[in-house]
């Protein structure tokens, strides 16, 4: 099939047309959430106690935040806001589709980072399994 469109020499990376990359940050949020919940249940019920639970939560939170920062940074680069200050992305072009997916991915990274911090916050205050 002939596509009437300018073809760059280097094919763009897969992430430019990938919804999976867009939702990577909330997926990290869900893994963090499930991991923290399971870890707390296990350490409170089977081994250790609140200290192990809180240590694990701290580690998981640091790892999740680091991942989300990387995902968010790459989405920000893909959004490419500073080149044309465009945040609407409603044209039928490859560029707008790439920017839209980047923009949504970046916004999702922010909400996921907030979600991770929120979920970790109770461990900051509560030091018991009761």
């Amino acid at each position: 099939m002939t596509r009437i469109e300018d073809k760059p020499d280097d094919p763009p990376p897969y992430r430019h047309r990938s919804i999976w990359h867009m939702i990577a940050a909330p997926v990290v949020w869900s893994l963090h959430f499930a991991g923290v919940y399971a870890w707390t249940a296990l350490s409170c019920a089977r081994f250790g106690g609140p200290d192990e639970a809180r240590l694990g939560i701290a580690l998981a939170t640091a790892a999740a935040l680091a991942l989300i920062v990387v995902i968010g940074w790459r989405a920000w680069k893909q959004w490419d806001f500073l080149d044309d200050y465009d945040d609407v992305h409603d044209a039928p072009t490859t560029e707008h589709r790439r920017e839209f997916l980047g923009h949504a991915g970046w916004l999702l990274s922010i909400i996921s980072a907030i979600g991770v911090l929120f979920v970790a916050a109770p461990a900051f205050y509560i030091g018991s399994c009761l």
Partner: peptide, 19 residues
């Protein structure tokens, strides 16, 4: 349930308000 676990769900319930 342990209050720590309740805290996770309380926090996520507040976070969902943002979107």
């Amino acid at each position: 349930l342990p209050s720590l676990s309740l805290g996770f769900f309380s926090a996520a319930s507040e976070a969902v308000v943002i979107p």
